[in-house]
């Protein structure tokens, strides 16, 4: 478990990093937190000719909150997102979800933007971006800057819309509108493992408590993170089972050694009902 030979680049500026990507794009990988990439290198599951280490790009190590939402720079660690109280106050779902990303030592090193680009269908932050209708800012020598909506960003398992010559600069998590409650919960085999099923929900209510928008996002339930809009479901029951049932029917999970597909779908029903209830109760009058 030693990596094959690789040429290492450690650019000091974003411009330099983007230039290196323009030059080596198809044969290079960007190294940020390295929590997925380094094990893959060691197991020789990937063998890029070059590594472009962005850990010196301090200008991207930020979590900023404004009236619109939270902007997370490419070098912000999961732990930075988790600890930023201003981000939690604006977008509570960020902390709710990031707390369940692996273990503290991994969160201290792994980056949120890196996780988005890696696009693991079992990872939490892609689903959060999707549920919040967020965006990712990309930059390349070729196309300059472009913004990709979450809905267009996760194109397949371990595949994002970030092109080979592009550097992900920032993720934007918009603040939910109006009276919106959110919740994140998952069930994993061990604390910190990839979830057998993970659910994030967002429920907006009006002043009477009627649900005006309800969505559920899922991880571990298909090749890409998915969001189901359950606004139209029957919310008359206090247990949210009808909405959960409706959402789970849209999912197509697979068997693996940790859980059967049928069990995963069952979990989706149970966790969705619990999650919708918690999200609703957080804002209900």
């Amino acid at each position: 478990m030693k990596p094959p030979p690789v040429v290492y680049h450690g650019p000091d500026t974003v411009d330099e990093a983007v230039r290196l990507l323009a030059e080596h794009g198809g044969h290079a990988k960007v190294l940020a937190g390295g929590q997925s990439l380094v094990p893959m290198l060691n197991m020789r599951l990937t063998a890029p000719a070059r590594l472009i280490d962005v850990n010196r790009l301090d200008e991207l190590a930020y979590v900023r909150t404004d009236l619109e939402g939270v902007r997370v720079g490419a070098l912000a660690r999961h732990a930075d997102v988790e600890r930023a109280t201003h981000a939690f106050e604006a977008v509570p779902l960020l902390r709710q979800a990031v707390q369940t990303v692996a273990h503290p030592t991994i969160r201290n090193r792994g980056t949120t933007v890196g996780s988005l680009v890696h696009a693991d269908p079992c990872a939490e932050m892609p689903a959060v971006l999707l549920l919040l209708d967020g965006e990712v800012l990309l930059r390349s020598d070729r196309a300059g800057e472009r913004v990709v909506k979450a809905a267009d960003f996760f194109v397949g398992p371990m595949e994002s819309a970030c092109e080979e010559d592009e550097l992900a600069i920032e993720a934007y998590f918009p603040k939910p509108r109006g009276r919106t409650g959110t919740d994140w919960r998952e069930l994993s085999r061990r604390n910190g493992d990839y979830a057998m099923c993970g659910v994030g929900t967002s429920v907006r209510v009006d002043d009477t408590g009627a649900v005006t928008c309800a969505k559920a996002a899922y991880i571990g339930m298909g090749p890409v993170p998915s969001v189901v809009d359950v606004t139209g479901a029957d919310f008359s029951g206090a247990d949210f089972c009808a909405a959960a049932e409706h959402a789970a029917d849209q999912l197509d999970p697979e068997d693996d050694i940790h859980a059967s597909a049928e069990y995963r779908r069952h979990l989706a029903r149970v966790l969705t009902a619990r999650s919708l209830k918690a999200a609703y109760e957080a804002v209900a009058p």
Binding site: R189, R190, N191, G192, D193, Y194, I257, H258
Partner: peptide, 16 residues
């Protein structure tokens, strides 16, 4: 052997 790693061979953590 389909789970030849500590990611998929689940040794309990202190939390378990």
């Amino acid at each position: 052997l389909v789970n030849a790693s500590y990611m998929d061979f689940l040794i309990p953590f202190a939390t378990e």
